[in-house]
């Protein structure tokens, strides 16, 4: 299946502005290709686990447990990814607000593998979430592309205030010059995945079409030309964050 044929909304009930499926196609293309740390087939398998996590009984039990680390068992998985990888994907999908630095440190995943995995998980969750909200069927996952990851680690990535190393505007290198659009400051959530620069690029791409461009975000006087007011955009943002028990 050619990437250009994905996210064709022409037969669906609602007329969706074209920048959304255009961005989704680019994300699907990136997921199908080798990244810095995972092969294309592994990246698509991670995407597939995102969908499996939604119906995983172990995840449901953990979600209602006093501590998510008190319940052991086997996830209902759909891939041959290692168990620790499946566990990380499922927890990120179903109970992210109760994750801890200790949990990540004990996950046996390098920070680089983890951040790239996180970038895939969150991209798929948001695209699938859009489809669910509109009552559209989920798009088929892309066909994995051959090739090996290149192992690129940005030289400016350093330990700081997060669980993973981060490239700050002050430590940014030439290859990452586009990440913060030349700004000397950026929100922590934008730089959070900068250990794998393409994860930030996908974040900017998706946020730019689903929410607002990075330029518009700090200015509460603009709604970026959307059909709802900025106040209503922020009401939705706040409600989703609160329902997800996200402090940030």
């Amino acid at each position: 299946m050619e990437i250009g044929t994905y996210f064709d909304y022409s037969d669906y009930q609602y007329k969706v502005r074209t920048d959304l499926p255009d961005a989704y196609r680019l994300v699907w293309q990136k997921i199908s290709q080798p990244g810095n740390w995972w092969r294309g087939d592994q990246r698509v398998a991670i995407a597939n686990e995102v969908r499996a996590a939604r119906h995983c009984r172990l995840c449901s039990k953990r979600k209602t447990a006093l501590s998510p680390f008190a319940i052991t068992g086997t996830h209902e998985s759909v891939s041959d990814l290692p168990d620790n990888v499946i566990d990380v994907v499922h927890r990120l999908c179903t109970d992210a607000s109760r994750l801890t630095r200790k949990w990540l440190d004990e996950s046996s995943l390098s920070k680089e593998l983890y951040v790239e995995l996180l970038g895939i998980v969150v991209a798929v969750i948001s695209i699938d979430g859009f489809h669910r909200a509109l009552g559209f069927p989920l798009e088929n996952l892309p066909v994995p592309q051959p090739g090996e990851p290149d192992g690129y680690r940005p030289p400016g990535a350093m330990d700081g205030h997060a669980w993973v190393p981060i490239v700050t505007p002050a430590s940014i290198g030439e290859r990452e010059a586009d990440l913060y659009d030349g700004s000397k400051q950026t929100g922590n959530v934008v730089s959070a995945m900068s250990l794998v620069p393409d994860s930030v690029r996908l974040l900017k791409l998706l946020s730019g079409v689903q929410y607002l461009s990075m330029h518009d975000v700090p200015n509460p006087a603009t709604n970026g030309g959307r059909a709802i007011s900025r106040a209503h955009i922020e009401l939705l943002a706040g409600r989703v964050s609160a329902l997800s028990e996200c402090f940030y």
Binding site: I125, F130, V189, M193, A227, S241, F247, Y248
Partner: peptide, 26 residues
Amino acid sequence: AMIDAAAVIANFQRMVRIADGTGIPL
């Protein structure tokens, strides 16, 4: 407006997990 609202809801299902999954402070 409904489509824009759906997009915002989808967007923040991503952002909360980035924040919670990396332990960033406010």
